[in-house]
Write a protein that binds this DNA or RNA. Sequence first.
DNA 1: GCCGTTTTCGGCCCGACTGTTTTCAGTCG
Length: 598
Amino acid sequence: MTAADGPPTPAAGDLGDGAMGNGTIAARLTELADLLEIADANPFRVRAYRSAARTFKGLPKPAAELLIAGTPLTSLKGVGKDLAANVATLLQTGTFDSLEQARDAIPPGVRTMLRLPGLGPKKVGAIFRDLGVDTLEGLEAAIADGSLAGLPGFGKKTGETVLKNLALVREGIARSLLARSLPIAESLADAVRAAAGTTACEPVGSVRRRRETVGDVDLSAASTDPPAAVEAFCTHPLVVEIVERTERTARVRLTVDPGRPTDAELVVNAPAAWGAGLILGTGSKMHVAALRDWLSAADLTLGDDGLRRDGALVDSRTEEAVYAAAGVAFIPPELREGGNGVLRVADLERGGGLPELIAQGDLKGDLHMHTTASDGAGTIREMAAAAKERGLSYIAITDHSKRVTMANGLDADRLRAHWRAIDAANVTTRGVRILKGIECDILEDATLDLPDDVLADADWVVAVLHYGLGQPREQIMKRLTTALESPHVDCIGHPSGRLIGKRPGADIDWDAFLDRAASTGTLLEINAAPERLDLSAEYARAAADRGIPIVINTDAHAPSAVGAATWGVYQARRAGLTADAVANTRDWPAMKALLKRD
DNA sequence: GCCGTTTTCGGCCCGACTGTTTTCAGTCG
């Protein structure tokens, strides 16, 4: 399903050069739709803004380029005179009148409440208008003193659900998705790299470890002229406030999304200590502490002025040199989460070393994507062409099954017709094999959304939970077991159904689930959508340990997203997966041999 | 607010579930 209301993911052209990207346009339109809906505006006006947001998000080219090329925005689907004018103003000035009016009418904290599962715009509107509550804290108080339950349409359960999810939502506000933070960090790093005397600059901290979410954005640099690097950092266009600044460090506040400030920090070291500074900046704290133990066994101390023995500088120009001095192989940043364990595996004296992790570019297929037949923006042929451009040799078209009515899910007849269209596309498509697939819902009553004889004719079936994620563990397990035991289900997609910072996943008995996946020969997906990353690294590791082949898929809803599995590959690396552990690093015949249907 | 006209308003993706009710509005996807 689409996640049109997620935080904007800044695209490459969205930072630094001043032009607002389609992601940000979509975010502003969605913001206005939310505010209007809370204010109880005409629902069709709200829908117009939402549908326009989807249109802009799915555009192959930045809207600003269209305008420059003289293409009127009114030529876009769902964009009329008013919306075109608003977006043009947005591009020129960073905002537009009706957005500002709506922001004046509804405090930012009110929109935040929409992130809570169970609270929609109508309820949030009632909370704001009838109780005057406009923060999460105020909401918590209103539950405690019983005033929330006193509102018409509210009861005991509403408050309970809110309290259950409050911590998750608060964390979602405090921390950004990696997909949002990494481009910001790279843009800042580019500015520092361009400064005189800078020899290197990298994003460090949780960004470099590719954590799912990121608090502050940290950078490490090496330079012969630290003040120049600090100056370049502080004058980046995203910086709105310099919180703290020294000769070789700076802490700044950025504005990317109003109401959600992000802090960024730069530390500049001498080029001779680049590797040492990079390790300290990257962390994690536990990893650095464990590494220091290993170094101290060799009478070495690690500081951001370099690696030293008896005060004398030891080679610490690179991370490799520092790890070598500790007697261990280089440890990729994604594996620096824990303490001593990874260092023991990497112990060179015992002939240790780490397996080579899967890399961006290793994937040969993408087996979860949508077309215009359900809620995607591209046709079968467009998705195939995009896959070819990305260097993939096969894709599976997996539109929604009929239960997902809002996404125009397919029943058996429409699905079979869709598959005939895929057959036809395969005849004329060179270089990419298009597989006949389906994203089949596992219904609340633990049956599959399509009959067996239909599923049997698919090349590839991804079964998923979309609805009833809050069911008790027993029923969730019954549903997953149905899917795992079906001879026609090849893979479970986004197994938990979580949305990071928004919605907890289903209550799964993971040991039982993974054991059953292994015994039935069912593959498991790492869904690469930044707000899903589902399986998590923890369970992807546990799955791989059981020999379950992992599949990394994009869940693309537009041609531009086909094969863009960046975040999923990072997640797999954090799970310590090699290319071999991931099924779709193989070509299709080899991958097909892994399926239970073969 | 958009669209599509039998040109200027009336219709605009939907089905199931949940928690609130006592017949249904709001939420979800």
